[in-house]
Amino acid sequence: GSLMYASIFGNVSAIIQRLYSGTARYHTQMLRVREFIRFHQIPNPLRQRLEEYFQHAWSYTNGIDMNAVLKGFPECLQADICLHLNRSLLQHCKPFRGATKGCLRALAMKFKTTHAPPGDTLVHAGDLLTALYFISRGSIEILRGDVVVAILGKNDIFGEPLNLYARPGKSNGDVRALTYCDLHKIHRDDLLEVLDMYPEFSDHFWSSLEITFNLRDTNMIPGSPGSTELEGGFSRQRKRKLSFRRRTDKDTEQPGEVSALGPGRAGAGPSSRGRPGGPWGESPSSGPSSPESSEDEGPGRSSSPLRLVPFSSPRPPGEPPGGEPLMEDCEKSSDTCNPLSGAFSGVSNIFSFWGDSRGRQYQELPRCPAPTPSLLNIPLSSPGRRPRGDVESRLDALQRQLNRLETRLSADMATVLQLLQRQMTLVPPAYSAVTTPGPGPTSTSPLLPVSPLPTLTLDSLSQVSQFMACEELPPGAPELPQEGPTRRLSLPGQLGALTSQPLHRHGSDPGS
């Protein structure tokens, strides 16, 4: 009898404990919600809404976190579960008819179910419309201010047509639940991603989709105040780019002037030289400038040598048109050559190039014969006009050509200096018209024969001689050997007369 009593008592207590286990969990969670309300000092109306929603959600799901349970299964099984949970929507909604099984599984994985109690606001006026909503159960109302403009029910759709707008718009009203509602919502990016994977279904979906109420604000059109608020930074940046392009296009129409201050000032006329910023005076940081632009901040801005204009002085008759350009485009679109090309026009420029290279940067340069637009006047290309890779490749080509020119210049200078040193070592320090008596009659020769300089066969020296023939050397430049009979510069000019005159010897006659 005691054994029977113990078994009955144990079973009854276990049954009672299981009955009250759900209630215990409910009270535990309710205590957490109330502690949250007390800690954050939530006001009474919002506090009442929180408690009511918790009670309804507990009775609806029995305190089970559906998302946590669903995430515990593998992905393939999750797709089947989501397809079952959203079967009513996918079967009865017209846009989803005719979709393949794979497309429906992908869509079912992207849908999220939302449960809303009465009085809950789903979308506020001015919120971004980031999702498309399908009503599965219940009814909602749409308000503009305090005026109800629409009441939607089961199988209705609200949001915005995503295929017509590249960016999400703003809501033009509040969406509030009238009863307990079940909503299926899919985010904008998720829907577009699935439709991109199934393009054959995309056309059918957009053609058959009928949005019951379009929440997009109709005033959000390009150029409206609301649109400016939504895309303020983007609009200002776009206007700045367009104004920069218009100014650079105007600059290219004036090829007669070359400016070292950047493309923003290349198009300024002579009357605007004294102004601080020219056409860019209202925004000094709008356009890029070269490193020399920092010198323009000092006094005497109108007389600054940074602004270059072609000189009108005539060229000498024998002067060549100019050196070879550094870039391939210089032959086609440049009416002034790079300062480095002028360094190779003569030997005198070679000796004085490194010492006063900055001073020569603004000297007169030889002109190319074609009066085409200036290379320095070409505006900086924006990322939309020329690819970045093209600019980098041009810079690399320019750097390689500069290296080759520097190597060639160093070799030419070394060769010229070597020839000058050899000339100085071969010439005796001094010569006299009267020579010392020699031991015999073989001493009648006034000077030792001097062998002429070897013929220069280097390509670089031939180019130097060509430049010497075309360029007029300055007075202080050293002379180079030329073709024809060679003669030492330090010898007297009348050596031929010395050989014809008898030598005057000093000596005593033994017979006297």
Rank of each mutant, 00 (worst) to 15 (best):
G126Y: 01
S136N: 11
G138F: 03
S139G: 04
S139V: 07
I142Q: 01
V149P: 01
L152H: 01
K154E: 06
F158V: 05
P161Q: 06
N163Q: 08
K170L: 10
K170R: 11
V175L: 02
L178K: 09
K185P: 03
H187I: 04
L191G: 01
L192S: 06
V194A: 04
V194S: 02
Y198G: 03
S202G: 12
D203R: 10
W206L: 12
S208V: 10
N214Y: 01
T218E: 07
I221T: 14
P225E: 11
P225F: 11
S243D: 15
F244Q: 10
R245Y: 11
R245N: 14
R247L: 10
R247W: 10
T248H: 09
D249V: 10
P255W: 09
S259T: 13
S259K: 08
A260M: 13
R265H: 10
A266E: 11
G267H: 10
S271M: 11
P284K: 04
S285P: 14
S286E: 12
G287P: 06
P288D: 01
E295V: 08
R301H: 13
S302P: 06
R307S: 10
L308C: 12
P310Y: 12
F311Q: 09
S313M: 13
S313P: 15
P314G: 10
P317V: 12
P320S: 10
G322N: 13
E324P: 04
P325H: 04
L326K: 15
E328K: 10
S333Y: 07
S333Q: 10
S334F: 03
T336R: 09
S341T: 12
F344R: 05
V347R: 07
V347L: 04
V347I: 15
I350Q: 08
F351G: 10
S352R: 06
D356T: 11
G359F: 14
R360P: 08
Q363C: 05
C368T: 10
P373Q: 08
S374C: 08
L375E: 10
P383C: 04
R394F: 08
D396C: 15
L398K: 01
Q399R: 13
R400I: 15
Q401C: 15
R404K: 10
L405N: 04
A411W: 12
A411Q: 04
M413D: 05
V416S: 04
Q418H: 14
L419T: 10
L420N: 02
L426P: 04
P429H: 11
S432E: 06
V434S: 11
T436D: 08
P437V: 13
P437C: 13
P439Y: 11
G440I: 05
T444L: 07
V450L: 09
D459R: 11
L461A: 12
V464F: 15
V464L: 11
V464C: 15
S465P: 09
S465H: 10
M468Q: 11
E472R: 12
P475R: 13
A477Q: 05
L480M: 05
L480R: 08
Q482M: 04
P485G: 04
L491W: 08
L491I: 11
Q494L: 08
Q494I: 11
L495W: 10
A497R: 10
A497H: 09
A497S: 12
T499S: 14
S500K: 08
S500H: 13
R505E: 12
P510E: 10
